[in-house]
Design a protein around this nucleic acid. Sequence first.
DNA 1: CTTTCTGTTTTCCTGG
DNA 2: CCAGGAAAACAGAAAG
Length: 833
Amino acid sequence: MPVNSNGSNMSAVQLLSSSSTNSNSASRLINVTSAISTTSNSCIKMEDISISQQQSTSAINPSVLSSHTPINNINSAASVNDQNCINSSTNRFRLPNASPNPENNAMESDDLGPVSRDRCNTWPLRRPQLDINAQTSPLIHEQIPEEDNDLYDSTESISNGRLGANSTAGLMGSPDNGAFSPGMSSPVPCGNTSGQVPPSSAGSDTSDPGTTAPGSNKKSTTRRNAWGNMSYADLITQAIMSSAEKRLTLSQVYEWMVQNVPYFRDKGDSNSSAGWKKTSASEADEECKCETLDMESIARNGSICAYDDELESESESESESRSRCYTWPMQQLCSVSTTNKPTDPPPPVLHASTDRQLPSSDHLLDNLSHRRTATIASTATSPHLIHNDISSLCSASDGGNLSSPLLTIQKKRVRKRTTDQVANQKKPNPWGEESYSDLIAKALECAPEKRMKLNEIYLWFSTNISYFRDKSSTEEAAGWKNSIRHNLSLHSRFMRIQNEGAGKSSWWVINPDAKPGRNPRRQRSATLENTTKAAIEKKRRGARKKAMELRAAGTLHSASSSVVGSQASIISHELYGDNDDSLGNFEPLFRPRTQSNLSITASSSRVSPSMTTDHFDDFDFPPFVEAGAMPHDILDRTNEMNLNTHPESSVFQRAGHNPMLNGSVNQSQAQSQPSAASSSSSASSLLQHIKSEPTPPNSIKNEANGVQPPPSYHELNAVRGVSHLQNPLLRTHLIQNRLPPPAGLPYNGLYSTATGTALPNWIHTGGAQLIPGLHSQISCSAQQTLGPTAALPLDLENLTLPDQPLMELDNMEAVLRHELSQSTSNQLSFDNI
DNA sequence: CTTTCTGTTTTCCTGG
DNA sequence: CCAGGAAAACAGAAAG
């Protein structure tokens, strides 16, 4: 969520008002003026829809309401709604059985299966007071069949499903907002996977697997929802079918939910409704076969979702399962599902805005936009042209020129690949062929210091990739942000560096030891546990028991997290190919969230006490490091490093008088990213910290009696040489983008590169080898303006490990000594810690 | 105390 | 079987 300059979260309205600021920033980043409106609009899309819906509830356009708004009328309809879902069919839709038979349909509160879930606004939590039985009004839940087995086997109309006080007409968008904007972005059809199974089966929560509607390949689930057994899809379908026009805007869907489902009615506030609205929106995109013309500069009254009868029937006839990607933004301008084969080539890429944003990222951008209706975008300078195009295109849905490359609408996720694609194991995504992890890596690579905070990654995505920019609303962004987090955590390709002193978010970096191509996923703790051999487990028990004893005795009272961190480090190390798990697995005992196999906290930057010498065998230590003194674990895992070095203990201290850090960067930071206050605060903290650092000693061996602080991953790479950089992303980045330390800030660490005159050789000699599709310089240039990242150029390089008194030394020492006693490794010495 | 953000993990699904 | 996307569940920490 964007944050304002004060670091507080921005509400939707705030986001609305601030979107221009963001867009300005974005446009500056990408140097595309036309992107301003796009970014701005997309940022406020959902909120705007909601707001406009509220504002326009009383502003009814009878003409619109009474009309069916056929495709051919999109010109007029576009003035009212920028997202017009075109019901291209007649009434072949087989209506779900909405019989309000209380016996069959009424939701029963005691059937509510899901357990409560706190603090997750992505899944509506049923509140106790929201018991349906407590709702007195004859609401839709009485009409909702508890079991929707025959929902689509019945031809009975659902028209008895009532809307709320606000009728469909009353919810129609106001034409007041219908001013067409010439600067409209390319139409972004709403997510729609055509040819999908009926909603009843697609999202059904039927408890009887056998009742899954024909054609559904989706696994049935026995889980029921808090509001009953109807899925979101069913509810949305019912909402749509309940409307007179068989279509609803997203806001109307929301409204219908609120009005008719007590559960949602009581979650209708902005805070608690985010989750179900998000889900509804996502499913509405698909289940209502929403034909959206996302003319973001048109009045944003919401999209009209109409159930596409053709798609419905076709999906049945084809028995084709819906795409697994529920947020897949299909290019469904029209209901042309059956005429477009998955093997159809993608339409020509004419995503002008994106191309201009990232001109050299053609590979990425080609794919970013290949699912977009680029032709329409290319004609965006003329609303009439666009309308005409849309009209003509959509009018062809009934057998028209659907094979036109301009209308090559992919019915479902296309996995057809070229030879290169197959070779590269690339899969097409709405944004291109790069996976989330690729994009994250790219983002990290593009960061000036090759590290980003989570929110900065978010920002990078939304700034540099049109797909995510278009989905930047709170609800829409939740999904891909979740995926980003998921990927960060999942892939060993990424490492998290604790940013403890800065307050919140950690730094994410690319694992310098990430191997080319695919890197193994992080093993999961369960896997680790499950695969634990009995002997190993037995071996662990002893150490675990003793550790617990120590802990119980108070020795670990303040160091538990650190121990866990060390443990996490160990686990993490295992996950990087070293399966020597002779180390105890304390995970079930004490492993806080941030100390899983992925995360290593600052305190865990301490050498893992149980580290065995086996871990160091295969690493080329820098000449200054005695073999064995540097745990491989640390070298592998720079995420054990603490960015917030202690002033008096840092070994890689640098001169603290950096004009960039002290002044200009802060300024640019404030200018370039006013919304990333958390980052700014972090940056400020770090900067303050850096400034406070005294002039460093040159001797790395002054510390810790042989326990050397690990180099940063840059330094590691410097030692290894560019040819040893396994990660092509990093290699590319390092060659292309590594900047010498800012002038005036001599790097006083071991590898002093003061004023950039002592850059490692590999920087100059290495051959840049961009991996296909990763043309980063443009995005990098954008990223470099993201603010805090640029403002913190050296922290990562100043990562220090063992000398950070981040926990009570006495405790730590006791723990370490104990653990060392358990370890076969006697190489580590902490005497002087 | 609640909300939000962040981070981890699991599950499901699809395609290779 | 694995990778990847998506969603979800859960929890810790910070902020309001």
